[in-house]
Simulated scan of single mutants.
Amino acid sequence: MMGKTRLEAFSDGVIAILITIMVLEMKVPHGATLEILLPVWPVFLSYILSFVYVGIYWNNHHHMLHTCHKVTGGILWANLHLLFWLSLIPFASGWVGENHFASAPAALYGLVLLMSAIAYFILQQQIIATQGENSLLKKAVGSDWKGKLSPITYATAIPLAFWYPLLSMALYVGMALIWLIPDRRIEKVLKAHEV
């Protein structure tokens, strides 16, 4: 077993690079009028949504790792699995933005979100398994309604994108808004455990 410091540092570094890649992919339009910005609004909106998603994963990953005191090989591989899917967000974000939320890019964006959610769940379960019967993380997540709702929403939005891509994108935005609501479950369990 090893400590979690390297896992946290590596994950934070990858996530910081993802955000950097996303912002560097946005090309500055040539011209000095506000009208010149109109063609690039979908790229900017997809960047905002993707930035929010990456931020949500970073925040939740950070809190989840606070409950983890030892790192196993399973946790390392599950974490890499999560980072793989998160690393595809800049590509999916760029494609959906550049193509003004067209069907196939909107479906791919949802697929990346779905696989990220599944990968996060796998990592969460790996951590819970190492903690045993008195798992702090298990107590904190409880029934985890948001964690269950997310993949269902993404799985619904993916095929929907081929008929109603904007509705599909609206579902992605709605799910991000749900996750933006501060979630204090892990903080509460850790604080109660310290007392």
Rank of each mutant, 00 (worst) to 15 (best):
G31E: 04
A107K: 08
Y57A: 07
M22W: 14
T153D: 03
D183E: 10
I75N: 10
P182S: 00
A78V: 07
Y172M: 06
A78D: 06
A140F: 12
E187V: 04
A192N: 09
H62D: 13
W58V: 13
G13V: 14
F91R: 09
L136H: 04
A32D: 05
L123N: 02
T67A: 15
F162N: 05
I75T: 08
W85A: 03
K27M: 02
G147I: 11
L166M: 06
W58N: 11
L45H: 07
T20R: 02
L177F: 02
L167A: 05
L111T: 14
K139V: 07
R185E: 01
V141S: 08
M175H: 11
F121N: 07
M22T: 14
I178F: 01
I158V: 03
N134F: 13
I19E: 01
F44Y: 04
W77Y: 01
Y53T: 05
A16T: 14
W95V: 08
T130S: 12
P151Y: 11
F44L: 07
S168T: 06
M169Y: 10
I75P: 12
W163F: 09
N60P: 15
L37V: 15
A161L: 01
Y57I: 04
A104I: 03
P42E: 00
L123E: 06
L34W: 02
V23W: 02
P159L: 04
S46W: 13
G174P: 15
N99P: 15
P90F: 10
S168A: 00
W77R: 01
A9C: 11
I158S: 02
Y53R: 01
L34F: 14
V141K: 07
A102Y: 08
P159Q: 03
K70N: 13
K4G: 01
S87E: 10
A117N: 10
T72D: 11
